[in-house]
Simulated scan of single mutants.
Amino acid sequence: MTRLLMLDGDGIGPEIVAATRTVLEAADARHGLGLRFETAAIGFAALERHGTTLSDAVVAQALAADGVVLGPVSHNAYPPVAEGGVNPSGALRIRLDLFANIRPARTRAALPAPARTDFDLVIFRENTEGFYADRNMATGPGEVMPDPDMALALRKITRRASARIAEAAFAAAATRPAAHVTAVHKANVLRLSDGLFLEETRKVAARCPGITYDEVLVDAMAAHLVRAPERYDVIVTTNMYGDILSDLASELSGSLGVASSLNAGEARAMAQAQHGSAPDIAGQDRANPAALIGSAAMLLDWLGTRSGQARFHEAAQEIAAALDSVLAEPEARTPDLGGQGTTSGFAARLVARMGGT
């Protein structure tokens, strides 16, 4: 039995999580994955019922599960943390020690994209520290205001976090044809913090002589991704740089609406789309579920590696192939991609492509 905790989130979350569950149930029936689905309330629904957007009970459920599927959350609209407005995404990444945010971006032949050329890359973003105020202090915020006219933000970079995200990136590169890792940084200005990140990344590179390694400044990387994204294979970087660059790469590949993402640690993983909760279209059955479905496929692939069971890999590959097939049909695409398709209809068509009913 494999326990999956499904967390709806806010806005369009319940709709795209339901669509994703439909696809996972079909994969389970076809491949005998032994999936057992559990649910819990987070976000505004949990705040109304329990006084917090993420309760300790839900964290305990997530820790006990084999994997988590997290819908998008509207954390920018939450009340202060002291009033229960915890960001479930950031908190779960910390509490479950999901240090690697893995964000693939690739063009699809049938899906229009702004990029000048086809590309296939993946960004490994460190997930547990950096400039993110909710992720770099044991207690208290990572931002302070000494007086009303001054705000200070603290950035934390550690050897341990830098080393393990680098190791994850090089391990992934070893499985890809190009076998190329690019470290993105700003060590010419942030000499201590980005310098420490580069020190640890270079140590890992030295242990992997079969993998091509180079380094690029973050501002230059933004320009290079626009001009020639096909030059890159695996990109490894710190939290904020990775957040920004992955959105850029995803838009260049076609849309954030198809941008999958996996938060992975040593023992746990959480599927999560890159995009937000889009409350303006919530409840209209027109949200694009492609990114979360693709993220769930990544979760199945991770579970296959962890368990050594090929059927999880096979299910993940089948979902990914069916996703490409449905995205190739203009009439099946949701309005954000120029189509007239619905959230539920997209999932049903994808299941049909998998051979389900």
Rank of each mutant, 00 (worst) to 15 (best):
M1T: 09
R3P: 02
M6E: 02
D8G: 06
D10M: 06
A18M: 08
A19V: 03
T22H: 02
T22N: 08
L24H: 01
L24V: 04
D28A: 04
R36I: 05
E38T: 07
A41G: 06
F44K: 12
R49M: 04
R49Q: 14
G51Q: 10
T52A: 09
V58Q: 03
A64H: 11
G67H: 11
P72A: 14
S74C: 09
N76E: 15
A77D: 15
A77Y: 09
S89N: 12
A91Q: 15
L92G: 12
R93D: 03
F99Y: 15
N101H: 13
A110P: 13
A110R: 15
L111A: 05
A113N: 15
A113I: 05
A115Q: 02
D118M: 03
E126W: 05
E129C: 09
N136P: 10
G142I: 11
M145R: 14
M145W: 14
M145I: 07
P148C: 10
M150I: 14
A153C: 10
L154A: 13
R160V: 14
R160K: 14
A161C: 12
A163D: 11
I165G: 02
E167K: 14
A168W: 04
F170C: 05
A171V: 10
A172L: 09
A173K: 01
V184K: 03
H185R: 10
N188I: 06
V189Y: 08
V189H: 12
L192Q: 14
L192N: 13
D194S: 12
L198W: 11
K203C: 05
A206H: 04
R207G: 09
P209A: 08
V216N: 01
V218E: 04
A222N: 02
H224N: 09
D233Y: 01
V234I: 09
I235S: 03
T237H: 01
M240T: 06
D247N: 15
A249Q: 01
S255M: 03
S260Y: 01
S260T: 06
L262T: 05
A267I: 12
G276P: 06
P279V: 00
Q284L: 12
Q284I: 03
P289E: 01
A291Y: 00
L292S: 02
I293C: 03
S295T: 07
M298H: 13
L300Q: 09
W302D: 10
L303M: 15
T305C: 13
S307C: 08
E314P: 10
A315Y: 13
L323E: 04
A328V: 13
E331R: 08
R333C: 11
T334V: 04
G339L: 03
T342W: 02
S344M: 13
A347D: 02
A348L: 11
